[in-house]
Design a protein around this nucleic acid. Sequence first.
DNA 1: GCCAACGTTGGC
DNA 2: GCCAACGTTGGC
Length: 161
Amino acid sequence: MTEARFAAPVTQYWLMKSEPGAYSIEDLKRDGKTFWDGIRNYEARNSMQQMQVGDQAIFYHSSSNPPGAAGIMRIARRAYPDHTAFDPSSKYHDPKSDADKPTWFMVDVEFVESFTDVVPLSTLREDKAMQESVLLTRFRAPSVQPLTQPEFDRIVKLGRG
DNA sequence: GCCAACGTTGGC
DNA sequence: GCCAACGTTGGC
C-alpha cells in the first residue's frame, strides 16, 4: 500500500516586472541566474512566498517601449530574506525591517528563454485569452503576480510567434 | 515628463 | 481605526 507522502508537484505560473533599463531579460540571459531583490509591496511579496522551485515566470519589461512580455524564467530558490532591506547604502533599504524578523523576501530566478520579440501589452490587451488576467483587470497590477496556466501558455505562444 | 490610481504612512 | 497626505508605479 503506497501512501501519498508527497504532494504531487504542481507548477505555478507568475509574471514578474522589471524595468529593462535596470535589469532586462538580456541581463538575465547573460547572468544565467539572479536574485529578485527590491520587492517592497506586500502583495508582491506574498506571491513570492508562495513560489516553489520549478515554477515558471514571465519576465515582463515595464516602463519600456513597448512594455510587454520579454521571456521566460524559472524559480530556482524559494523565498529568503532580502538582505538589501538591511543595507543602509542600498536604494532598497527599509529601516523598519528587522533582520530577526524580516519583512521583505526575494527568490532566485534562472533564465529559460527570451522571446524573439517582446509581446506588447497592447497585444495582450487585445487577446481574448488574457481578458481575465490580473495584468489587465487591475489598473496597476503588483510587480509580482500570479498567472493561470492558460494565460502563461498563451503568452508563451505569442512570444514564440 | 505627465498624471491617474493606488498602496502606505502617520496624526488624531 | 479613520482618512488625508504623500510617494510610487508605470502607461502614455
